[in-house]
Simulated scan of single mutants.
Amino acid sequence: MVRLFIFLAAVALVLLILALISGLSAERVRNAPRAVWILVILLIPVAGPTAYFLWGRPVRRTRRPSRRPSAPDDDADFLRSVDSEQSRRDRELLAQWERDLHQDDEPDRP
């Protein structure tokens, strides 16, 4: 019986802490001002946090999927632009090397 009491007390404490953290960190709460919810959570042992989670906690809105990729390597347009930019630089460098090589091969003409 004592173990059950300790377990229920631990559950009530965890519920209280979670509700308190959620109530203090939420941008907005529903159905009452934040101060009222904090008092309800603190003064009514199990029913306060339960009521907060049922009626006070803000409803999470589903976020619309972002049209922008989250990382540069997820963006195909970015990868194409990087690849084309690097390819252009490589082609220019190769052309310069070929010009230098051909200039070295040609004999000097007076």
Rank of each mutant, 00 (worst) to 15 (best):
F7R: 04
P72V: 11
F78N: 04
R64N: 03
F7Y: 13
A26R: 02
L93P: 00
R91M: 12
A10M: 11
Q103R: 15
L54C: 14
F5C: 02
R28M: 02
L43S: 07
R28L: 01
Y52T: 05
L42Y: 06
Q86W: 11
F53C: 06
G23L: 05
D105M: 12
A32H: 04
D77G: 10
V59N: 08
Q103S: 12
V59S: 06
S81V: 10
R64Q: 12
Y52I: 01
R91C: 04
I41S: 05
V46C: 10
G56A: 11
I41A: 03
R60T: 03
D83N: 13
S25P: 01
L93S: 13
R34W: 04
D105T: 06
Q86F: 10
D108E: 12
I44T: 08
A47I: 13
L94C: 04
Q96P: 00
A10N: 12
A47E: 04
R68S: 09
R89W: 10
L4G: 03
I44N: 01
T62Y: 04
R109H: 09
I21R: 14
L18A: 14
Q96V: 08
D100L: 12
R89M: 10
A9S: 14
R88E: 14
V29D: 03
G56C: 07
D90P: 00
I21Q: 11
L101Q: 08
R80N: 07
L43F: 13
L24F: 13
L101Y: 14
R68H: 09
P107W: 09
A71G: 04
F78Q: 06
L13P: 00
V46S: 07
L39S: 10
S70T: 01
A32V: 00
E27N: 08
T50I: 15
I6T: 03
R68C: 07
V59M: 09
G56V: 01
L20F: 13
T50N: 02
V40H: 07
T50V: 15
W55K: 13
